[in-house]
């Protein structure tokens, strides 16, 4: 029966990867002839398993956001699980936005929600290394792109002009 990788989640695939690598490493150390074919098959499978697992992670929120400043695009708070989901822009580090999730106290969220009086909401994510994240708003002034005669893309002369 063929395995449908689409139905397996990334955690299961990575556990399967550990199992396959364990077989390969055991075969190297133990040196039993009957283990070698099994190790070859396991190694071949483990070449592809992480790729399927990584493709499966796309779109899911990252529970370990890197510390830094982010421009908030949107957010969602799940009261039952006390998790805050953030849809953020990485502010020039990369053009692709990210989705992060973190455990967040309801009282802290309410307090934070009352202070959204900045037009460009920039958040600073901090980690106390204990898995507890701190989110503070930063008074952010966007760079003046029209300063110093900077030219927008649509203002640039074309080759045919």
């Amino acid at each position: 029966m063929p395995i449908d990788f689409a139905t397996l989640n990334w955690g299961t695939l990575l556990i399967a990867h550990i199992a396959c690598m364990a077989v390969v490493l055991t075969a190297i150390v133990v040196r039993r002839r009957w283990l070698k074919p099994l190790a070859v098959v396991s190694g071949a499978v483990s070449l592809w398993l992480p790729l399927f697992a990584l493709l499966d992670t796309l779109g899911l929120p990252n529970p370990y956001p890197p510390v830094g400043d982010y421009r908030l695009i949107s957010s969602k708070y799940d009261q039952d699980s006390e998790r805050l989901y953030l849809f953020v822009d990485t502010m020039g580090r990369d053009s692709t936005p990210r989705v992060y999730s973190m455990h967040f106290d309801k009282t802290r969220y309410d307090r934070m929600d009352q202070n959204t009086d900045y037009s460009a909401v920039v958040m600073r994510l901090g980690n106390d290394a204990g898995g507890d994240y701190e989110v503070v708003y930063v008074d952010y002034e966007p760079p003046d792109l029209l300063k110093d005669g900077m030219m927008r893309g649509w203002q640039a002369p074309r080759e045919t002009d």
């Binding site: 990334w10 990575l14 990867h17 550990i18 690598m21 390969v24 490493l25 190297i28 483990s46 398993l49 992480p50 697992a53 990584l54 992670t57 796309l58 779109g59 899911l60 929120p61 990252n62 529970p63 370990y64 956001p65 692709t96 936005p97 990210r98 989705v99 992060y100």
Partner: peptide
């Protein structure tokens, strides 16, 4: 070297997964 490469082969996918989580799904 085998021990070191074995550890890398075991851990690298987890490190990569932390990088791909949060990215958009095309």
């Amino acid at each position: 070297a085998t021990f070191a490469f074995g550890l890398i082969a075991l851990g690298l996918p987890f490190w990569l997964a932390n990088g791909t989580l949060g990215h958009p799904d095309p």
